[in-house]
């Protein structure tokens, strides 16, 4: 997994690529916690380059949402598609997360 961030006017865009699995999810959690501890409260997570996610990845996203809810923050996921999307659907996570079809739409949803 590679993780890059960029700060837009009202949200931090987190771009991940590769696998979000039992090995990489702890690293994802660590990076997100650091950003939330530094004061970031609005996030867009771009899944365009994610080709695999397991329950460990879903747990990391759930934890992120819980941390943000506790601080009045928000997260919107973008470009969740294909087999990765079917993992969200199987676990009923499409109703749990706000999702948009592009980063631009996700940023607009948080504006």
């Amino acid at each position: 997994m590679d993780l890059h961030t960029r700060v837009e006017s009202h949200a931090t865009v987190v771009t991940i690529s590769g696998r979000l699995d039992a090995v990489t999810a702890p690293e994802y959690e660590k990076r997100i916690r650091e950003m939330i501890d530094s004061g970031a409260v609005s996030f867009v997570v771009d899944f365009d380059q994610v080709d695999y996610i397991s329950s460990a990845g879903l747990r990391a996203l759930l934890l992120m949402t819980k941390l943000l809810n506790a601080k009045g923050g928000r997260v919107c996921l973008a470009n969740v598609k294909g087999n990765v999307r079917s993992v969200f659907e199987m676990c009923g996570f499409c109703a749990v997360f706000r999702m948009e079809n592009s980063v631009a739409e996700a940023l607009a949803a948080l504006a």
Binding site: L63, K66, N69, V87, C91
Partner: peptide, 13 residues
């Protein structure tokens, strides 16, 4: 989301 337990999803899938 706030009531979701962390776990049990793997075997479910």
């Amino acid at each position: 989301v706030n009531d979701r337990p962390i776990g049990g999803l793997g075997v479910h899938m």
